[in-house]
């Protein structure tokens, strides 16, 4: 039976806040719902008259990111998972007209130190490199921030979607924030098998839905997708195209033999993918 590790954490460093730290038994495949307070106070030993004040930012419930403090929803996977309410200390983040981005590794429930930004339009709004902040005043027009498909720290994870924590809207890999706007935004990175905590619902490889009760494990699915993707993009297609583009009279038998050999190599890989599937269906 998987456990759900319930905590409150400070954004973005992940320090636990308060005494909430418990493991709650869950049932794989069942919905999980949590509720927390929008405002969270802790005693302030240095200034007892002014308790530490935290404001709710978002939930990570079993890998589902949500911004409703009273309804943090997710689906319990087959392995241990988390339900983390992320808070920010009140008074932080008033950094002027800027968009602060954070690469959030969902499976590991933490912010990673890499920038999630691939490019920004207008280009003047972003200093490039590993900068995570986009100016909302440099250049003109709305800020269109394109996310990287992957970041170094989040090994094997890929970009899933933007999750603005304020202003802004996202479409695919592009986050758009109006000129002059100020906000925070999470770029969510997820992968297919972390070897530990593995949220089920948002794992892209599970989106087609289970094949059967013998559904391959996530790492098998990842491998299958890799096999199929590489087979589809293999240069064999290019070699075939190149041959077909030749004048009919200049196509040699060796040209065709080369294409045939390369296609066979593809077939061999596809066959291995079929064997993996069959092994799973046979319950091996």
């Amino acid at each position: 039976m998987p456990n759900i590790h319930r905590t409150n954490r400070q954004f973005p460093d992940g320090a636990q806040i308060g005494a909430t730290d418990e493991n709650i038994p869950g049932t794989a495949g069942s919905p999980a719902t949590f509720s927390t307070d929008v405002d969270f106070f802790l005693p302030n030993p240095g200034d007892p008259a002014h308790p530490l004040h935290y404001r709710f930012l978002f939930w990570n419930v079993c890998g589902t990111i949500g911004n409703d403090a009273h309804h943090g929803n997710g689906t319990v996977p087959s392995t241990d998972t988390v339900a983390t309410a992320w808070y920010v200390p009140v008074g932080v983040g008033d950094g002027g007209a800027a968009i602060a981005t954070f690469a959030f590794w969902v499976e590991h429930d933490r912010v990673v130190p890499d920038t999630p930004i691939q490019s920004v339009n207008p280009a003047a709004a972003w200093a490039g490199g590993n900068n995570t902040v986009v100016s909302s005043t440099a250049g003109s027009g709305p800020r269109m921030i394109t996310a990287k498909n992957s970041v170094p720290t989040a090994t094997n994870a890929t970009f899933d979607h933007w999750f603005p924590l304020g202003a802004g809207s996202a479409s695919a890999a592009v986050l758009t924030v109006a000129e002059g706007g100020s906000t925070w935004a999470l770029a969510l990175y997820q992968h297919h098998d972390s070897g530990g905590f593995r949220p089920g619902k948002n794992d892209p490889t599970t989106k087609p839905g289970p094949i059967s009760k013998f559904d391959p494990s996530p790492i098998d699915r990842t491998r299958l997708i890799d096999i199929l993707t590489k087979a589809q993009t293999h240069p064999a297609a290019d070699r075939l195209t190149q041959v077909l583009k030749k004048e009919q009279s200049s196509i040699s038998a060796d040209d065709l033999r080369g294409v045939a050999v390369e296609l066979k190599a593809n077939i061999n890989r596809l066959q291995s993918a079929v064997e993996l599937i069959n092994a799973k269906l046979e319950g091996k």
């Binding site: 050999v261 190599a265 061999n268 291995s272 993918a273 993996l276 799973k280």
Partner: peptide, 29 residues
């Protein structure tokens, strides 16, 4: 792990067969 074993065999099979295809094509040539 049966699933690990199946995965290893699948990868090995693809590589073996391609090696044989290449060898045979070279020999034909």
């Amino acid at each position: 792990s049966p699933s690990f074993r199946a995965a290893v065999q699948a990868v090995t099979g693809a590589n073996n067969r391609t090696a044989f295809d290449i060898l045979e094509s070279g020999l034909d040539y």
